[in-house]
Amino acid sequence: MTNLKKMALGLLVAVLAVGFSAFTSKSELKEHRALKAGKVVADHIVQIGTNEFREYLLSGTPNDGLCLTPASKDCIYQVTPLGKDEMPEQPVDGYSDEQIEEFLENSWIESAPSSSAALYSGPYQ
């Protein structure tokens, strides 16, 4: 194979990588736009730090095997259909302990079946 052909193939692979990324990012972009519009979009909330809960913005469900460090609150919460309509937009620093307690009282969220009291150590967005 000539050097020119090799270079052309390399460029093609680079373009493919960018195209692949742009194509698969579309659904996430939609979710981020919805977030900016003030709606809760995620089906799950994960506890990523003490007093810090975040929407799980990736496709699929959070992996309970990544609930590693013990904590006082649950690692994964499911957003109920009522919560989808009523829950406020996620603040910049995530939801707080108090907000999570309020959401639980209002039945806007519930502990995920396999969740334990721990911090979620995996990626969430």
């Binding site: 194979m1 090799k6 390399g10 692979v13 680079a14 990588a17 960018v18 990324s21 990012s25």
Partner: peptide, 25 residues
């Protein structure tokens, strides 16, 4: 051997091009 070496380059290129693009965007 040349083909394998070139394929390895392309695989590494795909990974880094994808990664760089996503970080910049």
């Amino acid at each position: 051997q040349e083909g394998i070496a070139f394929a390895i380059c392309l695989a590494c290129l795909f990974l880094f091009a994808l990664s760089a693009y996503e970080k910049f965007t």
